[in-house]
Design a protein around this nucleic acid. Structure first.
Length: 216
DNA sequence: GTGTGGATTATCT
DNA sequence: GATAATCCACACC
């Protein structure tokens, strides 16, 4: 039986914590007792007050971002684009408002329920290959915001074996073009060969253009 | 496979 | 009134 990551583990900077969450298992226990779970394959670090892409840039402190000021190991869940929820793991000590956004997981348990929750999904990877999609699949919403991940129906289990550094890739974060220099910071971490990440690394599409045209 | 535009509303200015 | 840490359908290659 896998072990929950303890609160202590989350008391480190978000960019340190983020790659260590790859390979771990995100678990959601429904009110019915059913377990929905997936392996974390893509995350992004948001550094806090000095990071223009972060909701807490400049020390901003509003009702919405209050959970980011909690100690590491709490959940920060917010609503965007009038439609979607995104799930973050708060990092570092309290009053240092930084977090790790979980962007994609590989479904492991409860696939049938996930499909019911995500009628638009065609392929299996469409169930959870995006921050809004995985929240829909795992029934993660406002109700879980601010909860401590070690003591709630939402938690993270340690990887059975640590992921080798060579299988981790990084890139700039997605959807933060408005953030000036911070938009280019390589704070997105993902499992290099996973088919379950939200989008393939850009080099892959470059290869396509370089591919020779078919010859008879 | 890629690219574009529309959906839809809590939150903040 | 504008914005947003996104997703989906559709057109086209």
């Amino acid at each position: 039986m896998a072990k929950k990551l303890p609160t202590d583990f989350f008391q480190q900077a978000s960019d340190q914590l983020a790659p260590q969450l790859l390979g771990a298992t995100l678990v959601r226990v429904l009110p019915s007792g059913e377990r929905l779970a997936g392996r974390i394959v893509e995350v992004e670090a948001y550094l806090g007050v000095g990071d223009r892409a972060a909701h807490t840039f400049g020390g901003r402190r509003t009702e919405r971002v209050e959970a980011m000021y909690l100690a590491g190991g709490h959940a920060y869940i917010y609503f965007v684009y009038g439609m979607h929820f995104c799930f973050n793991v708060v990092a570092g000590p309290s009053e240092t408002p930084q977090a790790v956004l979980v962007r994609a997981i590989e479904p492991i348990e409860g696939l049938k329920t996930m499909r019911a929750n995500r009628p638009a999904a065609r392929a299996e990877r469409d169930l959870t290959n995006g921050p809004g999609k995985l929240c829909q699949a795992l029934q993660i919403d406002r109700e879980l915001n601010g909860l401590l991940l070690t003591k709630s129906p939402l938690f993270i289990e340690a990887p059975t074996a640590p992921l080798p550094a060579a299988s981790i890739a990084r890139s700039p974060r997605i959807g933060v073009d408005y953030a000036g220099e911070a938009a280019a910071w390589p704070l997105r971490f993902f499992v290099k060969d996973s088919a379950f990440v939200s989008r393939a690394p850009s080099v892959v599409s470059t290869f396509k253009k370089l591919r020779p045209t078919d010859v008879g």
